[in-house]
């Protein structure tokens, strides 16, 4: 598990407008390019979840929920109406209950 590194990418995309734009345009390419600049490595399932904007999986893997929601809204709200996104996020999260998000 590299929850820390997963949070690091989520944090970057959430807080930086140009990273947000670049990630949203092509998440897989962004993740691959960014990971090459890091000393630590993502686990395959973390990399895949980030590359597919899979918030349910990121939640299940223990991403920090506060930042994960902000990130999810930022990168999905242009594709899914907010109410629908909130409902689906909650339903996806409910499948995993409360994964430990301690790093």
């Amino acid at each position: 598990m590299s929850k820390y590194l997963m949070n690091k990418l989520i944090h970057l995309v959430n807080m930086n407008e140009s990273a947000e734009d670049e990630y949203t345009a092509n998440p897989r390419a962004f993740v691959e390019k960014w990971e090459k600049t890091q000393k630590l490595k993502l686990e395959p399932e973390e990399r895949e979840a980030l590359a597919t904007k899979d918030y349910g999986k990121l939640y299940a893997l223990g991403a920090h929920p506060f930042t994960l929601w902000s990130f999810t809204e930022a990168v999905w709200v242009h594709e899914k109406p907010r109410e629908e996104l909130v409902a689906d996020y909650k339903a996806q999260a409910a499948k995993s209950g409360y994964p430990n998000f301690k790093t």
Binding site: P65, F66, W69, Y89, K90, A93
Partner: peptide, 8 residues
């Protein structure tokens, strides 16, 4: 709760 099943 924020970012969990019971948010909002």
């Amino acid at each position: 709760e924020v970012g969990g099943p019971k948010q909002f």
